[in-house]
Simulated assay, not measured.
Amino acid sequence: MVIFLGDPMQAVFGIFDTGSDLVWVQCNNLAGKNKFPHFNQTNSSKYKAIDCRNKKQCKTSYTKDVQCSTIRGDNSCLYNIGYVDGTASRGVMASDIITMKPNMTVIPNFLFGCSIANPEDTPGIIGAGNSIYSMPRQLYPNDAKFSYCISGIVSDINYVRFGIDAKLLGRKVKVLRHGLDPFYYMDVIGMKVDAVDIKVDPSEFAMSRDGETGFMIDSGYEYTSLSKLAFNALKYVLQVNFGAPTKVSDFEICYQFKFPWRTIRKPVIGIKFRDWLFELDPSNVWRKMGNTKFECLLVHRSPELKLSVLGAQQLFDVNIGHDLKNNFLYLQPMKCPTTAF
């Protein structure tokens, strides 16, 4: 995703991530090491490093990822954030203006992290979780909304719409929050393979008090992952109907391409919400693995054991709308738009 920071504005890039809250970009502290266009803060007349004593901007009580410097005499407001894949980024918190295209709306005092250390293959992160530091909450603090649609065609350009431009389409799902965590937990009560319920108690998908159990949606996850019990139950239903699966690469549930798909359509995986069933498009769930004869289910066993996450690949060509004020998620299968408005 491209955003425009500074005065004069500079185009910088970041990965859009609904599973985290901070926005951070590569700054010229990494000069000579940047693989992507970086933000040169010294060229912006509006750039300000945030002082830790400024409690309106250095909001350490709202997130564990922002802290004050522990070095005596240093009043820097710092951030240090880690991700599930083991990568991390750290740097200083800063403010500057952000310009939103195409209508060129200018928003002052936008808070973001100016990175001094981050993974070389990550240009930045555009955090869109439910937190005061996230992109949607900063742009529209009183009525935060956003939507996005990821096309299954790699060459297509995808757009994120914020505020009044957000498309809240389709049926809605109640979203649950855990403390100050930015995550979007969905109110899931079960799963289906075609018409068959997998044998898992609804509590397996319920958000727990410690937030370690539940079913999240996260654009930063490439593939869906299921808790240990849910994954085993899903695997069992498929095994009963199609025989023992084969493991190919990182995917545990694979079948030969010529069987049983020649005579039987691919199984449809459904997620049961409180009032309705959302069926995942089989083309987003099953994939032929290279030159092999196997087609694999694009679902992993969760490394967190108890947590389930709906990943981005399973939602290709689905408009996803978030209403943060009212805690609703909207899902609508569609051909993703290729224009901004």
Rank of each mutant, 00 (worst) to 15 (best):
G170I: 07
R274S: 13
G179T: 08
D218S: 02
K174M: 09
I271Q: 01
W261G: 11
K272T: 11
R177H: 09
G163A: 15
K174W: 01
E212D: 08
S219F: 01
D187I: 04
L169D: 09
P202L: 08
N241V: 00
W276L: 01
F257N: 12
M216N: 01
P245K: 03
I189P: 09
F278Q: 02
V196D: 02
T246K: 14
I164R: 12
M207N: 06
F162T: 04
V240W: 02
K272L: 15
F257G: 12
V196R: 00
P202I: 09
H178C: 06
I217E: 08
V160W: 04
E222H: 09
P182A: 13
T263D: 13
V160G: 03
P182W: 13
R209Q: 13
S219E: 10
T224C: 07
V237I: 15
F242R: 14
K272E: 14
V188C: 08
I271L: 14
D187S: 14
Y223Q: 05
W261K: 09
R274K: 14
Y236L: 11
K174P: 08
M207C: 05
L180H: 11
L169C: 05
K258N: 13
E222C: 05
R161E: 06
G179R: 09
K174T: 15
A206S: 14
D187Q: 14
Q256E: 03
L280I: 15
E279I: 00
G243W: 03
H178L: 08
A233F: 06
Y185E: 10
G214R: 00
F278P: 13
E204P: 00
F251P: 03
R171K: 15
F205Y: 12
V200L: 10
F273P: 07
S249K: 14
A166W: 05
K266V: 03
R171Y: 11
I271W: 03
V173M: 03
M191E: 07
D197T: 01
G190R: 01
K167Q: 15
V268P: 13
R171H: 12
T263N: 12
R265S: 15
D197V: 01
K272R: 08
K192E: 10
V196P: 00
K174V: 13
Y236H: 12
